[in-house]
Amino acid sequence: MSQRLEVIDPATPPPVWASLRNEAEAVSRKEVALASLLASVVLNHDRLGDALSYQIARKLGDTELRAMSLRDIAKQAYDSDGTLVAKAEADLRAVFERDPACKGYVQPFLFFKGFQALQVQRVAHWLWEEGRETLALYLQSRMSEVFQVDIHPATQIGSGIFVDHGTGIVIGETAVIGDDVSMLQGVTLGGTGAERGDRHPKIGKGVLLGAGAKVLGNIQIGDYAKIASGSVVLKPVPAGCTAAGVPARLVNCPTCEEPARSMDHTLAEVVYDYVI
């Protein structure tokens, strides 16, 4: 039976980078065939930002933008904005704490494309804010090609985000995502047509977005709300409520206290008789 490589105490969590390196060393000894990979991606670096830069370059480098050039761009972002590393640490913790299939930090860092795509978007967002929009859009394009995750570089995303599986996620330019949000594959945060300006959803803190959920338009999804899998939401959802169905209806208010952390996708048996 597989066991997690560490147990995290939420009150006093160990440093993410130290834990990641320790895990990488342990895996290198156990899986010699992966020792070179773990050395190049994790163990040869002194800081998490440097390892992230290498990983992004390794994944997205191509004939148009060579890996070394991409690595320099990512490193510039991490050196210039320390919040990017802090957010990456919080994202890694979120994966470990919320994904029962995750046995440590090495797995998401090396293999989970939801986590990796999110880190690419964070670098692309830094470029966008620096006025380097064309390069930011290039990273978005490569992210979509490699990970099947399409997040506009202008999207504002908080920390502690868990992107599970990742495949088919689409998030528009003016979307805003609060801290501690969890989302599964096939989520769309999009517009309702060809309107311009502020046209995408605003997702509050601690929201859970189920697989295939579609939230469309410049609407607010309140803190700690839950959007059930396969739902189509076109109107605001109050804080602490669950919306489900096509079109979405409120099915319980309040929902569970922290749905994004508990990953509780269950629904109440009593459904309100109005459409949101």
Rank of each mutant, 00 (worst) to 15 (best):
S2A: 13
Q3S: 15
P10H: 08
T12V: 13
P13V: 11
A18H: 14
S36E: 14
V42P: 01
N44F: 02
R47W: 09
L48E: 10
G49H: 10
L52M: 12
Q55W: 06
I56Q: 05
L60M: 06
D62L: 05
A67N: 06
R71Y: 10
I73E: 05
A77H: 08
G82E: 14
G82T: 14
L84N: 11
L84D: 09
A90I: 09
A94Y: 04
V95C: 11
E97R: 15
P100H: 09
C102R: 09
V106A: 13
P108Q: 06
L110C: 12
V120Y: 03
Q121R: 06
E130F: 00
Y138M: 03
L139H: 10
L139W: 07
S141R: 14
V149I: 15
I151R: 07
I151A: 11
H152S: 11
F162P: 00
H165T: 06
G168F: 12
A175H: 08
V176R: 15
I177K: 06
G178R: 04
D180P: 00
D180I: 00
L189Q: 04
G190W: 14
P201Q: 13
I203N: 10
G204A: 05
K205G: 01
L208R: 03
G210T: 11
A213W: 09
K214F: 04
I219D: 07
I221V: 15
Y224M: 05
K226Y: 10
A228F: 07
V232P: 07
V232Q: 05
L234V: 13
K235S: 10
V237C: 03
A239F: 12
C241E: 00
A243F: 02
V246N: 15
N252P: 00
P254K: 02
E258S: 12
D264R: 05
T266K: 02
Y272G: 01
